[in-house]
C-alpha cells in the first residue's frame, strides 16, 4: 500500500471527514500533525502527545503518596490519581503499576482504577502515536515479543512500556527500538518474527 507523509496544514480530504488531529476550512479537511495518508484516505499521525481516554490501559510509576491516595506519572502534564479506598494493597513510592482510566475531568485530571502492582522490572518510553504497532493486531506483536524475550511485557496506551526483569533485556530493547523506527512500514510483525528468530 502506498503511503504519503503529510505535514501540518496539508489537505487530507476535499470533504469534511471526522478524524482526530484535523481541522476544517471551508469544505476541506486539513492535518495538524505529521502523519501518513494512505490510498483509502486514512490519516494516521506519526507523532502525537498522549491524550487520555476513559478505558485506556496505562502503565505508570507512583510519584507521590498522599493521605487519600497515590499520584502516578503517566506521561501526561499532570499525574493520575489512585484513591486509597479502591485498592487493597499499599503502594510505595517508585512502584510500577498498570491501571485503567476511570475518569478524565474537564481540566485533564485523570482518575485511575483496577490497579495492579507490577513486579521488578523497568519502564521504557515509547511514542504514544506508535503504540498500536507495538501491540499489533489482537496483540500479536506483544505475544511475539513475550515468546522470544522470555518474560512479561505490559504496554500502556500512554506510551510507557513495562518489561519484566526476567526478559532477555538487550534483545527486547533492540526489538522495541526497531518497532519504533519501522512503525510506518507494513508487514512489521513478520519482519520482527524474522529478526527475533535470527538473533536468538
Amino acid at each position: 500500500m502506498d503511503k504519503k507523509i503529510v505535514m501540518p496544514g496539508e489537505k487530507i480530504a476535499d470533504s469534511r471527514i471526522r478524524a482526530p488531529n484535523t481541522f476544517y476550512e471551508g469544505e476541506a479537511t486539513f492535518a495538524t500533525v505529521i502523519g501518513t495518508l494512505d490510498e483509502t484516505g486514512r490519516y494516521i499521525p506519526l507523532e502525537n502527545p498522549y491524550k487520555p481516554q476513559v478505558g485506556d490501559l496505562v502503565v505508570g510509576m507512583v510519584v507521590d503518596v498522599r493521605h487519600a491516595g497515590y499520584e502516578v506519572d503517566l506521561n501526561l502534564p499532570k499525574g493520575g490519581f489512585i484513591p486509597s479506598r479502591d485498592i487493597r494493597v499499599a503502594l510505595q513510592l517508585g512502584d510500577y503499576v498498570i491501571c485503567k482510566i476511570k475518569l478524565v475531568s474537564e481540566v485533564g485530571d485523570v482518575d485511575l482504577g483496577e490497579v495492579k502492582r507490577l513486579p521488578m522490572g523497568k519502564i521504557v518510553r515509547f511514542p504514544p502515536a506508535k503504540v498500536p504497532r507495538l501491540i499489533g493486531r489482537k496483540s500479536s506483536m506483544v505475544a511475539l515479543l513475550k515468546e522470544n524475550a522470555g518474560g512479561d511485557i505490559m504496554v500502556g496506551n500512554n506510551g510507557y512500556v513495562w518489561i519484566s526483569e526476567k526478559n532477555n533485556m538487550p534483545l527486547l530493547l533492540k526489538a522495541i527500538e526497531m518497532i519504533d523506527v519501522k512503525a510506518h512500514t507494513s508487514g512489521l510483525t513478520d519482519e520482527m518474527a524474522k529478526f527475533l528468530k535470527s538473533s536468538r
Partner: peptide
C-alpha cells in the same frame, strides 16, 4: 514542533 507532534494549523 512538528517533530514533537504539537498540532499546528500551518507550517
Amino acid at each position: 514542533l512538528v517533530n514533537a507532534g504539537i498540532p499546528m494549523k500551518d507550517m
